[in-house]
Design a protein around this nucleic acid. Structure first.
Lengths: 202, 202
DNA sequence: ACTTGGTTAATCTAAATGGTTAAACCAGTT
DNA sequence: AACTGGTTTAACCATTTAGATTAACCAAGT
């Protein structure tokens, strides 16, 4: 068994993931997925029956991959500033490695909001844990009074949005220079963490 | 001429805008646009020839509608804190009235990055104006030292993302309660402005 | 009443696309 | 060599969809 002779099912899944992530469900074509996997289109149906089922398979995988890290960070007993630092770092790092995820998810949640909400509800992610820890830090005076939910959404916004808006940022501001964009993103880990902490620290 | 007897072209444009914004180019169907406009599908082709041309028509309109306000704010001679306040207010207000715009644009820029970049380049929006004004305020000590570009992206992130992520926020955190979400968004105008200014003010 | 320019609707077409079928293939087993 | 279970391929089918065609309609002008 050669190294490149990977099993077909996995090959299809990986190809499907690339195509679905780049084009979304409606924009993706079964033929394109087959081409991407360099196999016959029938094989895609043979292994996954339908476009919907194939999509479900990659969606859950693509979405779930970043849940554990986030859940872990939020549940730890580090102080809030460390939590924020780790959160921003891991989040941004993950999107560096999966740059299509933000746009993909933001688009697909409109087609089927329940799917993602169910996945989240069945996950280990529990925002109220983080809310409690924010309120404790507020009470003991470590951070300024603020709405915990807004802080959480602010954190996620600052991490996610630049990836979703990459073509605009890169094309309009950074002269279409990929290296400049990468540099910009690299800077962001420290920049965003500092931005948030400066805003909330007492 | 009755009030409801609007001209057909405009009726089509409005219907097309609703459908394209909700479903994206790939997800939209000419038949659905015709149904939405309560007219015969042929009329859509009669007035706009092709799906592409119709899309171009609504895209430019949908995108351009929020350029003037932003440009105006950025070019004014108010101090930076006022600029930020106005920017956040008008941006969020506009998305309250056009909630689908964020997801729509973030998705469509992947299909055709150049289109939007060209629109921006031909617009009155000039980020370097704002960059200059940020650097001046830094020099005269009004705000802390920071990368102007990151500040700009932060501002936009905080305004745009919550709308793009609405189904998640509403479904996962706010128990699917539309009123709660509207309240959350309403709070955000003040919350985001305060969050930013706290972070940068000296 | 008839013509004319523009508008609307019904019908048709060609291509794309998701999915099925049936046959070929191939590795291992007897 | 023949059988067997699973895999792969090419050919095919049914439906959807963008778009073209053609005829009906309608208001204004003559």
């Amino acid at each position: 068994m050669l190294e490149e002779e990977k099993n077909t099912e996995k090959t299809i899944l990986e190809a499907a993931k690339r195509v679905f992530l780049a084009k979304g469900f409606d924009g993706a074509r079964m033929q394109e997925i087959a081409d991407e996997a360099k196999i016959n289109k029938s094989l895609v149906h043979y292994y996954f029956r339908s476009k919907d089922k194939l999509f479900d398979a990659i969606f859950e995988e693509a979405f779930s991959q970043f849940i554990p890290k986030v859940a872990e960070t939020m549940a730890s007993d580090k102080d809030i500033f460390e939590k924020i630092t780790i959160f921003v770092d891991t989040y941004i790092e993950m999107f560096i490695n999966n740059p299509h995820i933000p746009t993909f998810i933001l688009h697909e949640i409109n087609r089927n909001p329940d799917r993602i909400v169910d996945l989240l509800k069945n996950s280990k992610i529990n925002p109220s844990l983080f809310v409690v820890s924010i309120m404790q830090e507020m009470q003991n005076g470590a951070i300024k009074p603020l709405h915990p939910l807004h802080l959480i959404i602010n954190m996620i916004s600052l991490c996610v949005f630049p990836f979703a808006a990459k073509p605009i940022i890169k094309g309009f501001i950074l002269n279409n220079d990929e290296a400049l964009f990468n540099q910009f993103i690299a800077e962001r880990k420290k920049e965003v963490t500092a931005f948030i902490i400066r805003s909330i620290k007492n």
